[in-house]
């Protein structure tokens, strides 16, 4: 049976064009449709990547357009990998990454577990909890600088209230020991709701019938939690860890706004350091090598992690 609408549309195709299309294979037509996308992908993603790799072997500086560009081989890579300052930024990034993920997963899962229970005002609480992740990271960074203010900051007053310490006696973003925790706290406040939502999706995907069967077998709540809830929500938890890990590896805006990478280099994450090298020092070749190293690191870690995630899902 023919579809009159399609037939009508086909009739509208100009004869010349119709003749030309009629001569093309399905594969060719498919290529015609995907070619613009592939072209855009090549232009926006692949070409810059290849160009960055090429630049990473040179001493090119974008602010010296008149200088001759020299091929320096692996020198940029050697400098980066043997620079103790860069290893310090890697450590700062690892501290930030590990602690934000641990805290966000623990708190996020707990909140999801509680929100998953049916109680009055459930929807309202969900909306309130989700509120921080709706804000711009720059805004969050900015207002946490006020919260952390020793003279007027609510955070210091809250700590003072519980400990009896003088609120002006410590500075969360001015102290080398406290600043790494200050950025962890702000990021956890902002992104725990995101982890909570993913965990909530995981918890709600567990069929009630499994719990009912466990009840019939007289399994305790504790046992149900460890043998049903955790294993079945684990792929979602792992997905949350993957998202937050990738996001926090490239964290920039919130931390720049909050601490500017200081005091000293204690909160200088790799993305902040990379930006300084590329757009403040203008060491384009060097920063390209830096970017390549970070890309390989994230890509490698993410690939291993995704394989592990797939294995968990297959179980």
């Amino acid at each position: 049976m023919t579809n009159p609408a399609i037939e009508g549309a086909a009739k509208k195709t100009p004869d010349g064009l119709a003749r030309r299309i009629r001569g093309l294979s399905d594969r060719t037509i498919a290529w015609i449709f995907v070619a613009p996308t592939i072209f855009l992908l090549l232009a926006v993603n692949i070409f810059p990547l290849i160009w960055t790799i090429r630049l990473s072997f040179t001493d090119f500086r974008v602010n010296r357009p008149n200088n001759e560009v020299e091929w320096v081989g692996l020198r940029n890579y050697q400098r980066i990998l043997s620079d103790p300052d860069i290893w310090a930024t890697m450590q700062a990034t690892a501290h930030f990454l590990i602690w934000t993920i641990i805290l966000q997963v623990l708190i996020g899962f707990t909140l999801a577990f509680l929100i998953n229970k049916k109680f009055k005002g459930n929807d309202l609480w969900t909306t309130i909890i989700v509120f921080p992740m709706m804000l711009s990271p720059a805004v969050v960074g900015n207002f946490w600088t006020f919260l952390y203010q020793p003279q007027i900051g609510l955070f210091n007053y809250a700590i003072a209230f519980f400990t009896g310490a003088d609120p002006a006696s410590f500075s969360m973003i001015g102290d080398v020991n406290l600043a790494p925790w200050a950025i962890v706290i702000a990021d956890t406040w902002m992104w725990t709701p995101f982890v909570m939502l993913i965990c909530l999706a995981g918890l709600r995907s567990i069929p009630d019938s499994i719990y009912e069967a466990a009840e019939c077998d007289r399994a305790s709540k504790w046992r149900q939690f460890w043998t049903i809830t955790i294993p079945m929500a684990l792929p979602f938890l792992m997905l949350a860890v993957l998202f937050r890990g990738i996001e926090n590896f490239k964290m920039f805006d919130l931390v720049v706004q909050l601490t500017g990478g200081g005091p000293g280099n204690t909160t200088t994450l790799t993305s902040i350091d990379l930006k300084r090298e590329a757009f403040e020092r203008w060491r384009t070749g060097y920063s390209s090598a830096y970017a390549v190293i970070l890309f390989v690191t994230v890509f490698g870690l993410a690939s291993i992690y995704v394989k592990a995630l797939n294995k968990v899902k297959e179980r």
Binding site: G174, V176, G264, N265, E280, W282, R283
Partner: peptide, 23 residues
């Protein structure tokens, strides 16, 4: 100098690390 940005960032880092971070 044309390299002022490089020179400035080095000084920022060295001085800030000592004065503020006590390094």
């Amino acid at each position: 100098e044309p390299a002022y940005a490089d020179l400035l960032l080095s000084m920022q880092e060295r001085v800030h690390n000592y004065v503020v971070a006590g390094d």
